[in-house]
């Protein structure tokens, strides 16, 4: 029973998805929440996986800044260079993308190559 359970768990798992997508030949970037301040919606270590077409799984903020992270991921996939993103209420971009909870987060985006 447990074998099936484990593989079931792994199949909705962001890192497992990243591996599967890459295995299938898709270009993939991985975003990770590396620091949070205040009432950030997702814990440090949370992941979002993005492919070159903008498909994604997982979350780094519960929906507030994913759009911006996906946009940056496209650049990271193209250049191959990792990037550190910061979102917060003090930041004009954060208002645009709507991190309205009052928290601040740092997100590290890297290519899986």
């Amino acid at each position: 029973m447990n074998q099936a359970q484990v593989s079931g768990e792994m199949s909705d798992d962001v890192l497992a998805i990243a591996e599967k997508w890459r295995q299938a030949g898709r270009e993939v970037a991985l975003a990770t929440v590396v620091e949070t301040w205040g009432s950030a919606p997702r814990a440090t270590g949370s992941h979002l996986v993005i492919d070159a077409d903008g498909n994604f799984e997982g979350s780094v903020s519960g929906g507030c800044v994913e759009g911006a992270v996906i946009g940056e991921a496209a650049d990271v996939i193209e250049s191959g260079a990792p990037r550190m993103l910061e979102f917060g209420v003090a930041d004009e971009i954060a208002w645009e993308v709507g991190l309205s909870c009052g928290g601040r987060i740092k997100v590290y985006v890297e290519k899986v190559a």
Partner: peptide
């Protein structure tokens, strides 16, 4: 991240 490292993880 290197793909091999992701697989190892």
């Amino acid at each position: 991240m290197k793909f091999e490292l992701l697989q190892q993880l």
